[in-house]
Design a protein around this nucleic acid. Structure first.
Lengths: 209, 209
DNA sequence: ACCTGAACACCGTTCAAGT
DNA sequence: ACCTGAACACCGTTCAAGT
């Protein structure tokens, strides 16, 4: 998945020298391959090797593993944001949100260990990946607000918790090596958020410690 | 938390030579301290150093990190199983399950990274920790069955999924550095499992792709 | 029986030296 | 301006040599 609009580092930075741009692109491609094969914790040395570049060059372009990850995910995250926008015209609103969250699971399981990186970024880190996640959060918040306005989902549902639940479900699925587990967990969570499920906190007969 | 019944390696193995038993105990204590301070991924070399023992001795007694973790968790896991048994006499049954799962969150957050180890063990590894988790699963299954028999929780709720959801919630909480997040996630899941929440799969007006 | 620690094969990260 | 790779400080794991 390296269909980057052509190559280009970022979309607004000063142009790189030709050889530097080439190394940059080789690194992104190698990282995508490395992450796919060995997960988000793939060896950076190995990625540099694959790219045919010194390890120092990798660090020069991407001072942290997270920066490299953010660049590799650029396209797919933009796609997730776009998908949310499309879904804003779908009814019922809660179904649109469900559909979107399901594709988020697909995204978070692109390669192993990604859910952890995304969870950290969602937690509000001020990093490239954090910014990308912020965009997803905003997009998701609109879908959630629609479902709440339609009276379909509980008002106390929170988009951040929901997105973390998606990462948690993806993570659990990975640990279990069971691709269906994530979907099951998400369904449990969403079932708990429907409004007709709201006003009963517990069978509430007796209170226990 | 090293209140091991005295020392004793396991409870049915052949006795160790006095010096070996001493090293064994030192290692367990050092591991507990190390895991508490640096998480379940704490350096094994550091643990051996703390115990004042060669790294080879650590590997002789505990051939894998998981074996060491299992021994360190022995007491607390036994306590969780006992707690489940106590709770079998509490009503309503679903509240008893909820209470137990909440203490499971506490247990899974004893130190960082523990939820991952427990998730792997719950996934059905044939290891010491896997066996301990099997005992917890059995204990939990009884609490869940009670709540289902009482008609309080959906029949399609599964104890393995539920215990994985607990680990996932603990994990998310850890990533967010928000101790309350796990409780919130668990509540969402449990809300989705109540019987009065069962027969509505979605607002079901229109079907979207 | 048990312990030790050197040895090996890996990491991530930095930085002086090059072009 | 950019690249390289040696250097450093860490790992986990094994195993020959000791007692």
């Amino acid at each position: 998945m390296q269909s980057r609009s052509t190559s280009q580092n970022g979309q607004g930075e000063r142009p790189l020298r030709a050889d530097a741009q080439r190394n940059y692109d080789l690194l992104v491609a190698a990282a995508d391959a490395g992450f796919t094969e060995h997960g988000a914790e793939a060896s950076l040395e190995d990625i540099a090797r694959r790219a045919g570049v010194g390890i120092g060059t990798l660090y020069r372009h991407f001072p942290t593993r997270e920066a490299l990850l953010a660049k590799v995910l650029d396209d797919s995250i933009a796609a997730m944001v776009a998908r949310a926008t499309e879904l804003e015209s779908v009814t019922p609103a809660s179904a649109a949100l469900t559909t979107w969250l399901e594709s988020m699971i697909g995204h978070a399981t692109t390669y192993s260990g990604l859910s952890k990186a995304l969870a950290a970024a969602l937690a509000g880190t001020c990093t490239e990946l954090g910014n990308s996640c912020q965009a997803m959060t905003t997009a998701g918040a609109r879908l959630l607000a629609r479902a709440q306005a339609a009276g379909e989902l509980r008002d106390d549902a929170d988009i951040k918790d929901l997105l973390m639940a998606v990462q948690a479900a993806a993570w659990a699925s990975e640990q279990l090596a069971d691709p269906d587990a994530a979907q099951r967990m998400l369904t449990m969570v969403l079932d708990g958020l429907r409004v007709d499920a709201a006003p009963r906190r517990a069978p509430a007969r007796r209170r226990i410690r």
